[in-house]
Amino acid sequence: MNNFSEKELKKLNSKKGLLSILSNDVINLPKTIRYIDYERQLKSLQTELIRQQACIIDNNMRVIVIFEGRDSAGKGGAIRRITERINPRHFRIVALPKPTEVEQTQWYFQRYIQQFPKAGEIVFFDRSWYNRAVVEPVNGFCTDEEYKIFMKQVNDFERMITESGILLVKIYMSISKKEQAKRFEDIRNNPLKQWKMSKVDEKAQELWDSYTYYKNKMFENTKNNGIPFKVIKANRKTDARTEAVEHILESIPYNKDREI
């Protein structure tokens, strides 16, 4: 029997608490309390994101935030929480499909450059040019030579981005093999989520060690005067989302006293 404090009982008896309890098949009161705390923390952080975005707009800043990570690591969910309260006219979410025949003849980075932000805009990449660092070599979508050229060029490419005045934030969402398997099973069993499962996703568990190898090579490459990733442990989605928001707030300067 759990002994809840008066404060915790008030949370459970709140509208949010009761809705959370009633919306789940299994009653888990400690989990409900954690969720209420998460919702309150997220709301506070989202208020700061609104303040930060206002400063980005006022100062004509250009910002790129890239999210990388294994399939079902929670990249899209984190981006949705980050963007759900900010001004939609001043941000874009970019999740590019596989390259067209024309794009395959271009410089690899070219199609990403076309998505870069204008003044006062934030662009969120749900997977980025780092597809060539991990997903493509693991699945045989690029040649060894193309991979080597990318790894040689990427740090210089990002140096050019930042020297041009664009702020670049790099986040990697990290999950365990067991957690990925659990999320895949949830997707397969949920008709509202089944569209998320691709042929590449289906092979992710089988190719886990190969993904790990190329992921580590990607991190190692940033030590050659590159920009490191912020690695976020994402087995618990709520913690990962708030940590991602906190990292963005820490990485992009803004006036914390600005009225909104």
Results as ranks from 00 to 15, higher is better:
Phe184Cys: 00
Asn131Met: 09
Ile122Tyr: 01
Arg92Glu: 08
Pro253Ile: 05
Glu48Asp: 15
Arg127Pro: 02
Thr105Trp: 04
Val138Arg: 01
Asn189Arg: 09
Gln53Ser: 07
Phe4Trp: 12
Thr162Gly: 05
Asn3Ser: 10
Met151Pro: 00
Glu179Gly: 03
Ala54Gln: 14
Thr242Cys: 12
Ile36Thr: 02
Ile149Lys: 10
Glu246Ala: 13
Glu101Val: 15
Gly74Leu: 00
Lys217Ala: 14
Arg92Thr: 05
Phe109Trp: 02
Val65Leu: 06
Ile122Thr: 04
Ala244Ser: 12
Lys177Leu: 10
Asn24Gly: 09
Asp239Pro: 03
Asp156Met: 07
Phe150Met: 07
Lys237Gly: 06
Trp107Ile: 15
Pro253His: 08
Thr222Lys: 11
His247Thr: 11
Asn13Ser: 13
Leu167Gln: 12
Met1Arg: 07
Arg258Asn: 11
Ile86Val: 14
Tyr254Cys: 13
Phe91Thr: 04
Leu29Val: 11
Val138Leu: 06
Glu8Met: 12
Phe125Gly: 02
Gln106Asp: 10
Met173Thr: 02
Met151Thr: 05
Ser176Val: 10
Lys31Asp: 13
Arg258Tyr: 15
Ile56Met: 02
Arg70Ile: 05
Ser251Cys: 12
Glu202Gln: 11
Ala234Trp: 00
Phe219Ser: 02
Asp58Arg: 11
Glu101Thr: 14
Val169Arg: 00
Asn221Glu: 14
Val102Gln: 09
Ile227Gly: 00
Ile33Glu: 01
Phe229Pro: 01
Glu68Gly: 06
Lys31Asn: 14
Ser20Arg: 05
Lys148Glu: 11
Phe109Tyr: 11
Leu96Thr: 03
Lys237Asn: 08
Leu96Phe: 07
Met218Lys: 07
Asp201Lys: 00
Lys10Ala: 15
Lys7Pro: 04
Ser72Tyr: 00
Val102Cys: 01
Gln106Trp: 11
Gly69Met: 02
Gly77Ala: 07
Arg70Glu: 03
Trp107Val: 13
Ala181Tyr: 07
Pro253Asp: 10
Lys230Met: 10
Tyr214Asp: 03
Tyr147Phe: 11
Lys256Arg: 13
Glu84Ser: 09
Lys196Pro: 03
Ile21Leu: 15
Met173Ile: 04
Lys10Met: 14
Asn235Tyr: 08
Asn221Pro: 06
Arg188Gly: 03
